[in-house]
Design a protein around this nucleic acid. Structure first.
Lengths: 140, 140
DNA sequence: ATAGCTGCAAAAGTTTTGCATTCCA
DNA sequence: TGGAATGCAAAACTTTTGCAGCTAT
């Protein structure tokens, strides 16, 4: 029997962090989220499970988890930062400017080109983040 | 005799905005900037030229110019938004995580793939913004 | 003349932090 | 036990806004 693929506790320990109730809750809430919640929303969802988790802890937890590479922070414009668990494969985000909906898109081909381009400049990619603002095309 | 390629005043009028001293100063300062300054830095550089330009006006001008499509707002993480004059060709930004240096990179090939990918989803790109965090490779 | 801009200062909104207390290792 | 993490509340920061006066058109 192998362990579950996402063992929060172990991931925290591996990162040299303590396994606290608060971190487990915040992380599980984020993993269950289909959308990309911001700190405020995470706090609200967390409070339902455990009303004692403070706002400061949500922020501190997010900072710690991001530092550890377990989650990712997404900086959009005109709105507070959102978060997502670090995806297995890198992907870009398409924002529908009319509805605000966020769609995840991915292209191995683009990834490859980007990696080559960056390497030619003498760098290696640590992570990347693409935000595409788009509008639904009127069907022709 | 043709007009200079970058006629601020005309661009403002075309956008239905008034040509004010403050806007001219902010816009010229941004155009002269080799880097990607944030509002605070723009305010500082602007103050050297005209000490009467207020912080509020810098923000309001940036918002107006962005709305008009003359400049672009870049949302980085852990720091205030930066600005650049709208580039002729779209380009991505590579941030050296060790030095904070921002390098502009571009690839027509990636642009093309991205556009196709998005179109296949039924969208058309309004603008996009890519942030690549990278580290200089040790020379082998 | 007048709608649009600006300056000033105050407010709003997001994120961080000091400190005493609690808790994991 | 001892350092790390938390809760609370206050502070720090970035960005926005109300309002009276100014200015480009």
């Amino acid at each position: 029997m192998t362990a579950v693929s996402t063992d929060f506790a172990q991931a925290l320990r591996d990162a040299g962090l303590r396994v606290t109730q608060q971190r487990m809750i915040v992380m599980s809430v984020l993993m269950e989220s289909e959308d990309h919640p911001n700190a405020d929303e995470l706090f609200a969802r967390t409070k339902v499970i455990d009303g004692s988790v403070s706002f400061a802890t949500v922020y501190r937890t997010l900072a710690a988890l991001e530092e550890a590479g377990l989650i990712r922070k997404l900086s959009f414009e005109h709105e507070p930062a959102r978060f997502e668990v670090t995806p297995a494969a890198e992907h870009d985000h398409l924002v529908d400017v009319d509805t605000g909906e966020v769609i995840e898109i991915e292209s191995a081909e683009i990834e490859q080109l980007r990696r080559e381009l960056v390497e030619r400049l003498g760098y290696e990619i640590i992570s990347h983040n693409t935000l595409i603002r788009a509008r639904k095309k009127p069907r022709s």
